[in-house]
């Protein structure tokens, strides 16, 4: 298992500093929650790690430098992400979604033929995310929570070793949140997970470690208790009922 190591990460949009010199280490197997007010730069940080936006500094996953690497190559190095708004292939079935996610290593001969049966890792992922019964359902017709799980399932079959989940439980019901929390626990056994989240209750229950971002910088870092006790964090969150 590999860990994530970020040094002096900076992302600037037309002079606006969205991420302003972030150092961040996530050790292998950790479940790190990334919190912070709206516009703190959480999504932008994940965008930088996955190659979507240009950034300076250094982002290492294991031995490999990710900055300057193309998006699809970063993905092939085992870095997978989900999006704030679920991004599944709505016109394709659950099975097709997972099969595509599982398929980057396939040769031309396999590609130009039909899928026969269900690949083993797809079957496993289906069971892990609990969508075995929705196999042939178009992903666009899934419930909101199920779409998020499908996205996580796609990361599993993609064989991602670093999972970056952007607000996976936003808009979910209470039960769905619980199920998602357990799912994250399950998949983190042999993977490193970073979760962006606003829900403090969810964070208390499922985070191992927490990093607080504010205005593009790291404000505080530690266990849930340490971060909650940090006066700087309380100040930033003052006026919101969550902290």
């Amino acid at each position: 298992m590999d860990g994530l190591s970020i040094r002096d990460l900076r992302v600037v949009f037309d002079g606006f500093v969205a991420v302003g010199g972030v150092d961040l280490d996530v050790s292998p197997g950790d479940v790190r929650f990334l919190i912070g007010p709206n516009g703190a730069g959480k999504t932008t940080l994940v965008d930088a790690v996955t190659g979507l936006v240009k950034a300076s500094g250094s982002v290492r996953f294991g031995e490999r430098e990710l900055l300057g690497t193309e998006v699809h190559r970063i993905a092939r190095l085992g870095v997978g992400r989900t999006f704030q708004t679920a991004a599944v292939f709505e016109n394709l079935t659950v099975l097709q979604n997972l099969d595509i996610a599982a398929g980057t290593g396939r040769g031309a001969w396999t590609m130009i033929r039909r899928r026969r049966g269900i690949p083993e890792n797809v079957q496993e992922a289906l069971e892990t995310i609990g969508l075995t019964g929705q196999l042939d359902q178009a992903a666009g017709t899934l419930a909101h929570g199920q779409k998020q799980w499908l996205e996580i399932g796609m990361l599993l079959v993609q064989d991602a070793k670093l999972l970056l989940l952007d607000e996976p439980v936003a808009g979910m019901s209470h039960d769905e949140r619980d199920a998602t929390g357990e799912l994250i626990g399950k998949v983190s056994r042999d993977r490193t997970v970073v979760v962006i989240e606003h829900d403090m209750d969810f964070l208390r229950r499922f985070a191992q470690t927490v990093t607080v971002l504010h205005a593009g910088r790291v404000l505080s870092e530690g266990t849930v208790a340490q971060v909650q006790a940090d006066p700087k964090v309380q100040e930033v969150y003052m006026g919101t009922k969550e902290a």
Partner: peptide, 13 residues
């Protein structure tokens, strides 16, 4: 349907 999403799966669209 979603070129960017495919990219993040490790394919070059």
């Amino acid at each position: 349907d979603s070129e960017e999403r495919v990219r993040f799966l490790g394919y070059n669209p």
